[in-house]
Structures are given as structure tokens and as C-alpha cells.
């Protein structure tokens, strides 16, 4: 990224981004109740909530940036750092827990040298623990991107993850 572009991003005047935000905001009337849906759309678009987005949302909804961070950090869905190319979610719901979900989570952490909430250095994977994916009868499950891998074992885990570039 060139210096000029960085500067432009910092000032929040990147024309390409203007378009994205205009599109996101066009669906809303600018009421306080729109905050969470706007954050969800923002994350859908960028994969996370960039600082710039918070500034722009604050201006659009006429509320403080503080308030936005307060709400966004309350909900586990929102992240403030860029995700990896592949998102790994290890289910630690009850059914998965009693069938060894934690052992799987430990295995991912060890295999990829990654902590929950983090992203690998090459941005290939990020890891999250989730409370329940609702596939309890197939426990334990690991979700990578949109694919749910059921009845997972430590052994199968490595080959499964290798499939995602």
C-alpha cells in the first residue's frame, strides 16, 4: 500500500470505500435500532469492523464512536481484526463438549499455533470457539467456512484443514 493511499484511508476519503458504505447505509433510515444490522452488513462486506467504519457509522447514526464500540464489543459476532482466508469454528456446545470438543480445539491450536480469536501469520486460517452450531447429534463438529465436518477426530482434523488453502 502506498503512503498516499494509507493517508487517504486514514482520513476516511477512499472513494472505493465511499461506495461500499453508501450501499450499506442506503438500506437504513439512520435510527438507533439500525446499529446492529449496519454492523452486521459492515462485517459481511469487510470480514470485520474496521476503525473507519465505526467513524462513518457514528456520523450516519449521529451517535458517538464510544457507543458503537460499546455495543459492538458486547456481541460476540463482531471482530475488530481482519479474519483469515478460512475460518475455523470449533463447536464447544454441550454435546460436543462431552464428546471431546475441547480436545479438538486444543489440537487446532497446537497444529496451527493459533489461539481462539486469532489469525495465522499467513492469514490462511482464523480460529473461533463457538457455543453451539446446532448439529448436536453429529458431535463433535468443526466448521470450516460454510462446511460442517461432523464426528470429527484429532486424526482426521489435520487432513481436513489441509484441504483449505
Amino acid at each position: 500500500m502506498t503512503k498516499k493511499r494509507t493517508a487517504r484511508r486514514r482520513s476516511g476519503k477512499d472513494p472505493a470505500r465511499d461506495k461500499h458504505f453508501a450501499r450499506i447505509f442506503s438500506e437504513f433510515r439512520g435510527e438507533e435500532g439500525d446499529l446492529i444490522p449496519i454492523l452486521q452488513k459492515t462485517q459481511e462486506r469487510f470480514g470485520f469492523i474496521p476503525r473507519e467504519a465505526v467513524r462513518r457509522i457514528a456520523r450516519f447514526l449521529k451517535i458517538s464512536e464510544n457507543q458503537i464500540y460499546g455495543v459492538a464489543s458486547f456481541y460476540s459476532q463482531f471482530r475488530f481484526t481482519a479474519p483469515g482466508r478460512n475460518s475455523i469454528k470449533v463447536c464447544l456446545g454441550t454435546a460436543c463438549h462431552v464428546r471431546g470438543g475441547q480436545i479438538l480445539c486444543d489440537a487446532v491450536e497446537r497444529e496451527l499455533d493459533l489461539k481462539p480469536g486469532g489469525t495465522t501469520e499467513d492469514r490462511r486460517y482464523d480460529l473461533e470457539r463457538v457455543a453451539c452450531l446446532g448439529c448436536c447429534a453429529l458431535a463433535p463438529v468443526v466448521q470450516v467456512n460454510a462446511d460442517i465436518h461432523s464426528r470429527m477426530t484429532v486424526i482426521r482434523l489435520k487432513e481436513t484443514l489441509d484441504k483449505y488453502e
Partner: peptide, 8 residues
């Protein structure tokens, strides 16, 4: 908002 882990 079915949040209980283990309920679907």
C-alpha cells in the same frame, strides 16, 4: 434466539 448449547 435459541442460545442453549445442545438445543436445536
Amino acid at each position: 434466539d435459541e442460545g442453549d448449547p445442545g438445543a436445536f
